[in-house]
Each structure stands twice: as C-alpha cells, then as structure tokens.
C-alpha cells in the first residue's frame, strides 16, 4: 500500500490500517454518473476503493457543468458519454483504482452480472424505475445499497441493508407518481455534495467494517430553508413486502422486452431502448449522410444529428435519445422515420 497517499484517512482511528486494507479490496457499483454519481465516484476514488463500476446512459451537455464535478468543457464539446469521461478523469485522480465504465442503461441483465461481484451499490440515478430495480437486485444478492436523491435545495438519503432495514419497496406508497420527481425547479450544487457526504460516509462505514456506526435513519434536508430531519425508519417496514419479506417475489425484476421508452427528468427528452443491442454507428451514419438536410456529429461512442426542431442521439448499444419532445409517441415516430 502507498501509505503516504492514504495517511490522513488511516490516521482517522475508526478506519486505520485495517479499514484501508478493506477499502482497497472493495468493489463498489455506482449507478448514474450525473451530479450525485460524479461526486460519489470522486470521493471513493480518492479514498482508495479497489474497484469501481460506473454505469450511465447519458453524455455530457453544457447544463451539466454547473454541478457534475468530473466533467469539463472539452467533454461537453465532444459529447463524451458520462461513464467514459468519468473514467478518464478518475484515472488521473487515482491510477490505482480499477474503473469499469459502462455506457448504457442499468438494466436487469447488466446488473445480474455485476451486482454479485460488488460489496455495495451507490444510487445516483434520477428515476424510481431504476431504483426499484436496484432495490430488488440488492435484496436478491444480499447487498447493501444507499439511496440518494436531490432536487432544488432539498436532498434525501437512506441506507438499505438486506434483512436489517426496510427496503424501498416497503416505502413504495411514498414514491411520487411519474413526473412529479422531475419538477423543473432546478438544483443548486451544494445539496449534491451534502447528499453525497451522507452516502459516502455510510459507504466508508460499511466498507471498513464499521456497521455499528451506520445512521439507520431516513435523512432529509433543505439547505435553503435550513431544515434537517432524521427519522427512525423501522416502523415503515412492511411485513408482507414483495421485495424483502419471507414472501418475496422481486416484482421489479420482471422482464419487459418491448421497445421501452422513458421521458427523462426535466430534459424535454425521450429515451428509446430497442430490443436489438449493438449498433454499427458507421453504417447508420453512412445512410444518414445521404440526406443532405441532416447535420451529423460522430464520436466513437455515439452519433448525433438534428432534424427540424429535434436532436437525435444514437448510442452503440442501440439506445436513442430524442431531444425536443416529452411525447413518447412523437419520439417513436421520429425514431422509426430515421433509424428504422
């Protein structure tokens, strides 16, 4: 071990040499590389976890730079996938951490491969569909996961421990209906750091064998309104929960193989995920170039083009983002018109 590098963290008695050794042997999965994911990934990389897997489906845009700390203007200009840009930056920060970047949706097949190999999952997603999937897969493989979410100046976090705490499915009645999570009320950067501070402190406790120090509470705060709340969550456990009780059936792991659409939070964008997986971007580009009206941009990970008031971005895994609409049907029509 490079003792000097982690000296201050090792001096911190609850971690010490033994804790640092445990950290170096840990593998953490971070789902999402937006604001929360960037900050969590940097914190864990600097702390010296052995391996990080980062999954993200998006690419860097200008409006991300205000709060997504791993990304630069160059990443934005090159439309770099966030997972790839994150890996580049993190490798500069700490070359000893093994970082796997996955450009794609956190969907069941990918999670089934990775989750059994990990010690912990950090939630940095922007939607409850993925969180419920993480919840069930974490229960299935008996892994802890740490919920975190932000909007405006408000943040909320909770550590879900298999068999020890209620799970997200137990709290399902409190999950806001579709769309209500995407209030276009903006976000300030410090609330991201505050949620990540909670999440990563919990992560360090778990990974260094300090479970007794875990908060065990549902924590929320509003930095602008000077509010802070901690709640004992045990009373929210559902004895017949379909995800964590003895009658579990993991409802969120049920397959759905249709062309899936998702309206992305406050982005005026629809994502389409077709059945077919790998896409030859060069082939598609060749076809599109026949249409002189189309303005095309390509990098090794995606291609992007504009038609009318829409911008369409196609990834290697076949996923497509249609910017300029929140209407799934309109997005499907555009998709079929240009991408078959």
């Amino acid at each position: 071990m490079e003792t000097n590098r982690y000296h201050r963290q090792i001096l911190f008695a609850p971690i010490g040499e033994a804790g640092q050794e445990k950290l170096i042997r840990s593998h953490v999965l971070i789902v999402g590389a937006g604001a929360l994911g960037s900050s969590s990934a940097e914190a864990l990389t600097r702390a010296g976890v052995g391996q990080l897997t980062i999954i993200d489906r998006d690419y860097v845009e200008e409006s991300n730079l205000q709060r997504q700390q791993l990304f630069s203007e160059a990443d934005m200009k090159q439309k770099m996938p966030k997972a790839v840009a994150a890996k580049q930056r993190l490798s500069e920060v700490n070359s000893h951490v093994k970082i796997d970047a996955i450009v794609g949706d956190a969907e069941i097949d990918i999670l089934r491969e990775i989750v059994p190999e990990t010690d912990l999952i950090i939630d940095a997603t922007d939607n409850f569909e993925t969180r419920l999937l993480l919840n069930d897969i974490a229960q299935k493989y008996q892994k802890p996961w740490i919920y975190g979410a932000v909007v405006a100046s408000y943040g909320v976090t909770f550590t879900v421990l298999p068999d020890k705490t209620p799970c997200l499915q137990c709290l399902q009645e409190y999950i806001p209906a579709n769309g209500a999570t995407c209030d276009s009320v903006g976000i300030i950067q410090p609330v991201v750091q505050k949620v990540v501070s909670q999440q990563i402190t919990e992560a360090l406790k778990l990974l260094t064998g300090n479970e007794a120090a875990l908060s065990g509470k549902l924590i929320s705060f509003d930095l602008w309104k000077n509010e802070h709340t901690e709640m004992e969550a045990e009373a929210l456990r559902k004895p017949d929960c379909p995800s964590c009780s003895s009658k579990r059936s993991y409802p969120n792991l049920a397959y759905d193989s249709r062309l899936k659409t998702a309206v992305l939070c406050g982005r005026n964008t629809v994502q389409l995920r077709p059945q077919r997986k790998q896409t030859d971007l060069d082939e598609v580009a060749k076809e599109l170039k026949k249409n002189k009206q189309i303005k095309l941009f390509e990098n090794p990970y995606l291609l992007s083009f504009e038609v009318d008031s829409f911008r369409i971005v196609l990834f290697q895994d076949g996923r497509t983002l249609v910017h300029g609409t929140m209407d799934s049907i309109e997005a499907k029509n555009i998709y079929h018109r240009y991408l078959g």
Partner: peptide
C-alpha cells in the same frame, strides 16, 4: 413534527 418526502433527481 418531522416531514420527509421522496424526490427522484440525481
């Protein structure tokens, strides 16, 4: 009184 609501952003 403590009041918590879930949000989705990340």
């Amino acid at each position: 009184v403590e009041i918590v609501h879930f949000v989705g952003g990340g």
